[in-house]
Amino acid sequence: MKRVYGKPDAMTDVPFPYCPGCSHGTIHRLIAEVIDELEIADRAIGITSAGCSVRNWRQFDCDMVMALHGRGPAVATGLKRAQPETVIFTYQGDGDMAAIGTGEIVHAASRCERITVIYVNNGVFGATGGQQAPTTLIGQFSTSYPTGRDPRTSGYPLKMAEMLARVSPESYIARVSIHNVKNIIKAKKAIRQAFLVQIEDRGFGLAEVLAACPTNWRLEPVRCMQKIKSDVIPYYPLGEFSSQSLKAQ
């Protein structure tokens, strides 16, 4: 029997510290597979965010840097400009990128920095106990707003991919989901493309991944996947939002 699927080499043997069914693990695996396929493990530098994924420096078998909350794109800019031969990726959640780090990501995108951003959108602040994030859906339960998000007081959920595509003329920006196998394969292609635009010096790469937080959504992992399809994707449509077509030529 031949092994056809298994743990990628760019991932360490340390088990994930996340809750059962957490989407971070799937996204970590996709990134590690892309790092293996592109053979960039020796020159890749990852930047961890604040949030649950702060511990992902133990998961990737490449250099990792810990940035302050939301400051991943700023650290990535410095690293990339000092060492242009490296491949820099930041791993950020919605609390990290869409809340405290909005300034950094907007300017990094407008400068079309040659960096790759993996943006995990699960709609809550997972690490601190499920408070409302800028991406929480209208009416969605969170511990800070138990009656659901009210746009009158909390505004509307931020669509980061569309917003950044407007300010970044040289970019590959896509929104993908991981709620079933077909979309996981598409998500891997988008993550690969976000790395390729950086490696080929074609622009800024961002993959927004719609993810689930079973613990803070108060749902079983399987029902979380169904909720992404029924509730999250209608508000956050999937697809590519690059203002210029930077697909593989």
Binding site: M1, V4, Y5, G6, K7, F16, H24, T26, V181, I184
Partner: peptide
């Protein structure tokens, strides 16, 4: 059948799939 769907969705990369050549 060794389709690999379980490997794809596993959030903990706990599954390895083997297939008969």
């Amino acid at each position: 059948t060794g389709c690999g769907f379980c490997y794809m969705v596993c959030p903990d990369t706990a599954i390895a799939v083997y297939k008969e050549s």
